[in-house]
Amino acid sequence: MSRKIGDVILDLQNISLRFGGVKALTDISFDIREHEVRAIIGPNGAGKSSMLNVINGVYHPQEGKIFYRGAERKKMEPHMAASTGIARTFQNIALFKGMSVLDNIMTGRTLKMKSNMLLQAMWFGPAQKEELAHRRKVEEIIDFLEIQHIRKTPVGRLPYGLQKRVDLGRALAMEPQILLLDEPMAGMNVEEKQDMCRFILDVNDQFGTTIVLIEHDMGVVMDISDRVVVLDYGKKIGDGLPDEVRSSPEVIKAYLGAGH
C-alpha cells in the first residue's frame, strides 16, 4: 500500500459509558492514527457499537475525554460530529427506506449544500447549479461502488448486500476524514465480502480516509487492518498489530476461544 500512516487523529481517553446500571464501556483508552485501518473486535455485547456511537456523538460518555486533531472535543451532537468529518455506517442498515438509492446518497451531501430554501423552492440559479454539481459527485460514488444499475430503485426493494453498499455510499458522499464502519460485511456471502473489502481498501488508499472497522470475520480483520482493539464486556483487553493481538493469551481466552 502506498499510503503512509500519519499522526494520531482521534484520541480516546478513559471513556466510560453507562446505561442505568449497565456498564457498556469501562475506562477505555485507545487512539486512531490518520489514514490507518483500525479494527475493533470483540464478542456480541462487548460495547463495540457503543464505542462508535461515542465517537460520532450519538452517546455521551459519563467519563473520559476525546481529542480530535489534538484539541479536546466538547460534548457534541451527531450532526456536529458529522460536520467535523466523521461519517458512519450502521450495523442494522439505517437507510432512508422511502427514497431511491440516488437520493439516499445525495443526503450525504447535505452539509456541503449551502443554497437557501427560497432558491431551492424556485429551482433557480445557484440552487440548480449546486444540485447538479453534487449530483456529479454522487455519480462518481455510484460508479465507484458499481451500483449504476440501481440508482433509481427505492432502497427498500434491494437485497441486503446491496443495501449495505448503499449505506457505505451515503457515508462516502460526506467525503469524511474518519469513516466508522459497523459490521459492514455481516450477513454477506464470500463474494459480497470480497467486494466490500475491496471497496474499503480502495477508499482508504485512494482518498486517504481513516477507517474504524467493527468486524467479526477474523480473516478479514487480519487481512485489512493495521491495528486492532479488542473489547470484552466493555473493557479493553487487547490493542496492537493484528499478529500481536492474535497471539495474546487474554484475547484468545475471551474471544477467539469462544467458538470463533
Binding site: P78, A82, F96, G98, D103, T107, A171
Partner: peptide, 14 residues
C-alpha cells in the same frame, strides 16, 4: 424525508 425515514441516521450524516 431522511428525518421521516430514520432520524438517527439523518442526524449522523449531518
Amino acid at each position: 424525508m431522511a428525518i421521516r425515514d430514520m432520524d438517527v441516521a439523518a442526524e449522523v450524516i449531518g
